[in-house]
């Protein structure tokens, strides 16, 4: 509607008195964004110097020879991937991350539902007790697990014996060790899933369930048609995030098995540590770490896409 346009003094005419102001206003705006940039500069410095630069430097390192004198291109990558011991690392890392995350997600889901069932009744205490594994520094609780698994003093084996079973060499065979490592990771990580899923459960409006009940939905139907779709986002993002963290895990394997037996439990991180720091082969160590990169980047891409989508929806 262009009515009243006779009252409007057009914008071009209006600008005539104010070139000076426009200038100084721009200056003000510039000063403000300069101040904003200054406040961010420690963060930027930190990220650039200690995250971005090391990433590129890692790529550079991975292309050097053992003495770090000569540039060898992708030879290190080719060499690593041809080695059966490293192929085992890839296999074990994927097995470990995928199995552990699935189990954590499932256990977290069950626990969240149990917690949701008893909501309001000493919920804080129960939640606190369930969170204990997650609160103790992982390296220390892993040490305790090691002690529990100890070949000659295992309290678990004592209990098994009491119940009439044979001893189990928890860390003695490759597959036992793999399962033990996964078990410890699940023990440590399930509480995190529980609190994320519990928060998601709480954010589902009660009316939806009431409406579904009135429509005649059974408990199982409510789970599949309301709870899971409503939690979809948070389930996804928690799983993706946990995949990244689990995939890059170091503490558990380092302390529990240090890669053994027969290098059957090494993950990228522990293997890189052995190769790069302990054996001092920096380029090979960097190479091993960098093998994680594409997988992590792909996972990060999905997390980010999800986060951005939600930000957009919120705006």
């Amino acid at each position: 509607m262009a009515d009243g346009s006779t009252m409007v003094v057009g914008a071009p005419a209006a600008t005539s008195p104010g070139p000076r102001q426009a200038g100084s206003m721009k200056q003000l705006a510039r000063r403000r964004s300069l101040a904003a940039l200054a406040l961010c500069s420690p963060l930027i410095l930190l990220i650039v110097c200690l995250k971005i630069y090391p990433t590129f430097y890692a790529v550079f390192l991975s292309m050097l020879d053992r003495k770090m004198n000569n540039f060898v291109g992708f030879d290190n990558f080719a060499f690593m991937i041809s080695r059966p011991s490293f192929q085992l690392v890839i296999f074990q890392s994927v097995l470990f991350a995928v199995t552990a995350v699935i189990l954590k997600a499932f256990l977290g889901f069950v626990l969240a539902h149990l917690m949701h069932n008893i909501r309001g009744r000493n919920e804080r205490v129960w939640r606190g007790l369930l969170l204990v594994p997650w609160v103790i520094p992982l390296s220390l609780s892993t040490l305790t697990w090691w002690w529990l698994f100890d070949p000659s003093y295992s309290a678990f084996n004592w209990t098994l014996n009491m119940l009439g079973f044979e001893d189990i060499a928890f860390l003695g065979t490759v597959w036992n060790a793999r399962l033990s490592v996964i078990a410890v990771n699940v023990w440590f990580g399930a509480p995190f899933f529980m609190i994320m899923y519990l928060a998601a459960l709480k954010s589902v409006p009660e009316q939806l369930y009431e409406a579904a009940s009135i429509d005649g939905a059974t408990a199982v139907q409510r789970l599949f048609f309301i709870t899971i779709p409503m939690m979809r986002n948070i389930i996804l993002i928690t799983v993706l995030y946990s995949l990244i963290v689990t995939f890059a895990d170091f503490d558990i394997v380092r302390i529990l098995t240090n890669g053994g037996p027969q290098d059957g439990t090494h993950l990228f991180a522990t293997y890189a540590f052995v190769v790069g720091i302990q054996s001092g082969n920096i380029p090979r160590g960097a190479t091993v770490s960098l093998f994680m990169f594409p997988i992590l980047a792909a996972l990060a891409f999905f997390v980010l896409r999800d986060v951005m989508k939600r930000n957009k929806e919120m705006a």
Binding site: A11, A14, T15, P17, G18, Q21, S24, M25, L28
Partner: peptide, 15 residues
């Protein structure tokens, strides 16, 4: 203010 002036009590307050 993109253009024009605002006065409060006898002063231009744009800036």
């Amino acid at each position: 203010i993109t253009a024009g002036e605002i006065w409060i009590g006898g002063d231009v307050v744009n800036d």
